[in-house]
Design a protein around this nucleic acid. Structure first.
Lengths: 245, 245
DNA sequence: AGTCCATGAATTGCATGCAACGTGCCAATC
DNA sequence: GATTGGCACGTTGCATGCAATTCATGGACT
């Protein structure tokens, strides 16, 4: 069960496992998530078929699957393009991520194994080192690893899959999240509170802080959004209210 | 954007809109959700192609999409069957639904329009009438309508889509949820508290009560699960802890 | 000069044919 | 008698051909 590439793929398992369609789907998804395929890029069936040395059929199936995952947008008889999200859609996604990851973190605070806790502390320490070195790339990697560890810590495949696939869908839009060091240290401080709360099994603090942390991340990302100019950019959509229970 | 049948299909719009693949996908999904296709049923490409009077290609694409949505399970070179969930998977799904719908309800408490509030009250009143009449079918319908109204009240397409598609995936497993009237009146009382809280814009009570309401619903459903016998049924899996922040 | 229509190129959507994989059964052997 | 090997069938997976829809460009008419 569980939809996407996360459960299906043994990480980096020698390329070309399973059916051609799934393989093509994974490879395209990787390129989109890694930002090698910019949003708005046209995805032509014959071109892709040629690139991957397969026929059009598996490419078609891969594109349909990617469309359902939300990574590409397919218009009838008009082909597919890499999904370009409007600022409004991005806000909705971040809000959903905040809800999902906060719920994951709350469960993780009660269910994480000792190994999970150790991994979490290590990723956080790595983040501190990256921050002190002013290495944005490295901090970004540590950030992703930390969040992934917490998400998996809820031990609920359904929640894990939804949170992970949502993260993938917005990943290419948050490359510049930590371009200023101020946001980086702010993020690190927020991480510290969350990690402490999880280690203390404090579900209330964990939930509240993870949620507000992700709302901060949303603001940091969408502030930079208008610079893209690729989307309708509905005039800096007013952020809907964010109740903190 | 947004994956599934919910946004794509104008409800009951004359059958056969859009591409054949999407149409076939919707029709199969409907039959699964409505319980006309029992979990475990074998889905043969040629048989389905004959039934819908199309070729195998659109059927193939439809099955792939359904597999990603989690409604069918596809094993390589072995065909597809209607997804049969184990008790453990069902628990995970209910937990995810509880988190998602509680979040939706919290936002709905602040964002619902007056029309939404009126619709919510009406569905709740319909539920009361059904309960007093002892009509389980009718209460079930009112229950679905009430929850759908609250979910849509969050005005976040991403959250709405995730919550709705999750509900669809488990819908065929909860037909017998209210088979005893005790659970029905219990459910109604819980609804009353939630509706009141939403009308009062009380985000904290809304969130807490919706979450515990859905956890109750989970217990009511999975208690009946072993009777199905179609799944491994991992010996009445111990319910994981449910922190209430 | 502007607008509308028509025709053409390109791309997707669907159908069918062929090959490969997995399954079930039967028989031969230990 | 049980187990294993092989064979045949059915089903999925992929490739290719044809039809339908869409967009663009050019011409003619107002």
């Amino acid at each position: 069960m569980e939809s996407a590439i996360h459960t299906a793929a043994p990480p980096e398992a020698g390329r070309s496992r399973g059916s051609l369609a799934e393989d093509v789907c994974r490879r395209i998804a990787d390129e989109i998530v890694l930002g090698q395929l910019a949003p708005g890029t046209r995805l032509d069936e014959v071109t892709l078929a040629a690139r991957f040395a397969v026929s059009r059929t598996p490419v078609r199936e891969a594109l349909k699957q990617l469309a359902i995952m939300g990574l590409v947008e397919t218009r009838p008889n008009r082909g597919s393009v890499v999904a370009a999200l409007s600022v409004e859609q991005l806000n909705h996604m971040f809000e959903a991520i905040a809800e999902l990851e906060a719920a994951c973190a709350r469960h993780a605070a009660l269910r994480m194994s000792e190994a999970d806790r150790a991994a979490m502390r290590q990723h956080h320490a790595e983040g501190r080192a990256a921050m002190q070195a002013g290495d944005i790339e490295r901090y970004e990697a540590a950030n992703v690893a930390l969040h992934a560890t917490i998400i998996r810590g809820c031990y609920n495949p359904v929640l894990i899959d939804m949170a992970t696939s949502l993260r993938d869908r917005v990943s290419s839009f948050r490359r510049t999240q930590f371009r200023n060091l101020e946001r980086m240290s702010e993020s690190f401080e927020e991480h510290s509170v969350i990690v402490e709360a999880i280690l203390a099994h404090d579900v209330i603090t964990t939930y509240r802080e993870m949620r507000s942390h992700l709302i901060s991340a949303r603001s940091a990302t969408t502030r930079a959004a208008p610079a893209w100019g690729n989307a309708p950019a509905a005039a800096a959509a007013p952020l809907p209210p964010d109740p903190l229970p």
